[in-house]
């Protein structure tokens, strides 16, 4: 399953709650959630823990728009909108954590 998160972990618990539920699968960070995958963010350690059992992707255009294109946490895979489409296909279902 693909979990899509669109909120910054600093003021919304969507990503944290998703990580506590999802035992396996893939996570795509879009919109304000891209901050979670940037170096030095308070959430970085939790994200790294999750990367042990979940594959994490980030939407590059959202990262670039926010001036954070140069601080992506290693191991997180950047995709464009085409890559976003591919992820929704390679996973049988997807859930947007609104």
């Amino acid at each position: 399953m693909l979990h899509i998160i669109n909120k910054s972990p600093s003021n919304n618990s969507a990503l944290e709650n998703c990580l506590s539920i999802a035992a396996s699968g893939e996570i795509l960070l879009i919109e304000d959630a891209v901050y979670a995958a940037t170096k030095g963010n308070a959430f970085e350690a939790k994200l790294r823990d999750a990367m042990g059992h979940l594959k994490v992707y980030v939407l590059q255009p959202d990262l670039d728009a926010r001036g954070m294109g140069d601080r992506l946490v290693e191991g997180v895979t950047a995709v464009d909108y085409g890559g976003f489409v591919d992820l929704t296909i390679s996973n049988n279902t997807c859930q947007s954590w609104l």
Binding site: N6, I30, E31, P61, D80, Y81, G82, F84, V85
Partner: peptide, 18 residues
């Protein structure tokens, strides 16, 4: 941003032949 993200997603899906 929801409508913008959705639009760019839709365009990318169509570009890929979906």
């Amino acid at each position: 941003q929801a409508s913008d993200s959705a639009y760019l997603f839709a365009k990318a899906a169509i570009a890929k032949g979906h």
